[in-house]
Write a protein that binds this DNA or RNA. Sequence first.
DNA 1: TCGTGTGAAGACGTTCACAGCT
DNA 2: AGCTGTGAACGTCTTCACACGA
Lengths: 205, 205
Amino acid sequence: MEKPKIPGKTIYRLSIYHRCLRRLEDNSIETVSSSSLAKAAGVNPAQLRRDLGYLGTFGTRGLGYPVIELADAIREVLGREHLQPVILVGVGNLGAALLRYDGFKKEGFEPVAAFDTVPEEVILRGISVPVYHVDDMPSFIRKNKVKLAVLSVPAAHAQEVTNELVDAGIQGILSFSPTVLEVPASVTVNSVDLALELEQVSLFT
Amino acid sequence: MEKPKIPGKTIYRLSIYHRCLRRLEDNSIETVSSSSLAKAAGVNPAQLRRDLGYLGTFGTRGLGYPVIELADAIREVLGREHLQPVILVGVGNLGAALLRYDGFKKEGFEPVAAFDTVPEEVILRGISVPVYHVDDMPSFIRKNKVKLAVLSVPAAHAQEVTNELVDAGIQGILSFSPTVLEVPASVTVNSVDLALELEQVSLFT
DNA sequence: TCGTGTGAAGACGTTCACAGCT
DNA sequence: AGCTGTGAACGTCTTCACACGA
């Protein structure tokens, strides 16, 4: 069997296309051309067609792509059928904001618990997720078979916490710490460094 | 004059190297080899040497790079001498967290004001930046010649606010809205989509 | 010998341009 | 005619591998 091996960048864009398609679904639009979907997603039409080519051949020449089928196909590839449980470690300012951020739920992720070294000090305004002490983290991960973690602890403790997460069985980490985390190859890490992102903007002006 | 034309990805990594170098400066370490710095930054040694090559030739063969000179050279390229003023629009959960986030200041950015549609409702816990009504935003931008903005408003209003920012003279925007923003070519936009980032992690596990 | 600097090769990603289906 | 699907060209980024200086 051929394994299509979809490139990472394409996968990233598929998520974007999916979001655009959902809007079209909501508006009961049935077909869409590569050029208009590409414009909505902010990419080149040829690139979009190339990306969709990884899903098989869907489009109708002369017409465009069927919105619903295409959205389903992307969902299948991205495995978006059920909500993924996520834990969050480090309920400081940023962590608390992330817990309240509803964008995660919209995209299929559900924060099921949060951990901090001083859980009693966490202000619970608008947070419906339980906050526990980090000592309880490994057992929680194992018991609930959580695979994804969001890391928003101070940089100085990021590696230490990461080690605990990995030992407990976490397979994917979204980190907001401005450090390079060392993990086994089997664990995926995605780092978002807010200051670096802002810097990028400033350098191209 | 030859303009070396440093690639965007290299610039991004230069920022990372710079952060690593600062730690070395703090520890009074005077020279560093490409391999050890590369490891700290999480890149391939050859890539690091290639990147540093854009700055001119600094290293001493057989020895490594002088930490201080190298850090200075990067600072010069990145134009990091003075603090850049930044405004933030949309002081919701995420926006408030970003205001309290001290990582920006450490990297040379200073939030000078924030704007919201209901500034009076913003809880000021730990926020030292003044929060004004969005109606006052354009005049503030013009008066203070602010060039950079962080956008953390709901997706539905992102484009509208962006238009106002651009009209008022903003040249770089760091957006946290999950939408594609339309701007003139002269304006740089960098989008951070938190849900997409988490999704990326989940897809590679 | 150690580690930089760099030509050359390779991997990867994007875009063009057009054949072919509806 | 309109729009997809894709070979091929192109451009960019990464890595190798080695000459050369300290």
